[in-house]
Amino acid sequence: MLARRIIPCLDVKDGKVVKGVKFRNHEIVGDIVPLAEQYAKAGADELVFYDITASSDARVVDKSWVSRIARVIDIPFCVAGGIKSVEDAGRILEMGADKISVNSPALSNPELITQLHDQYGQQCIVVGIDSFYNEETGQYQVHQFTGDESRTKTTGWQTKDWVAEVQQRGAGEIVLNCMNQDGVRKGYDIAQLAAIRAICHVPLIASGGAGEMSHFKDVFEQADVDGALAASVFHKGIIPIPDLKAYLRQQNIEIRS
């Protein structure tokens, strides 16, 4: 059976892994390559590297670390952040990344998704979506430029409409980051993820809110997501990956051994 994936996310800033709470106050967690190796050895099924400064800074970011990771890692990994063109994506894929993820640039130019699909194929095109629940309107709204608090803005897209749009344009996977939950470790946004699951026909990855092992069980069982992404619980050693995988297997969730 196809296994559910456990995906540590490493936010990268200036070549270091960082983590902030609700996208703020980034603190350095460690160097990229040793952390990536450590996670691969611990049984992570896949890794995601988000260069969180790239999209907002409008500068060319040094991505040579992609190739350094590709040399040592024997599990798939995805690179996100600052990919604004087919050429940007091509360079990262050539350096050995398995997938590239686009977020803010796809919101500015949705045609980018179509172009990436046509050039490199659906299998390596991930679309990351930062979704914020607005309590006043009761709607889930897509946010843009979330890597930089001063530029973060609400787009005109409701999350469900953007999810439909990116699939129609050829996205091969969607990472849904539920912003209200990010970094606070109170559990994934099951209601939102289950609603999006119903209209998402490509693999769906949950992001934002993991704090305990049971949160992973809940999101797999109740929202039927293909993978669960988390950062701080792994970086801070709150949940060791081997323990998490053993626990999920005990709960009869299909997990790679």
Binding site: M1, Q122, G172, E173, V202, P203, D226, R256
Partner: peptide
């Protein structure tokens, strides 16, 4: 089921 078939399988 979802396509593409993506992930670890036996």
């Amino acid at each position: 089921l979802r396509l593409p078939h993506m992930g670890w399988n036996q």
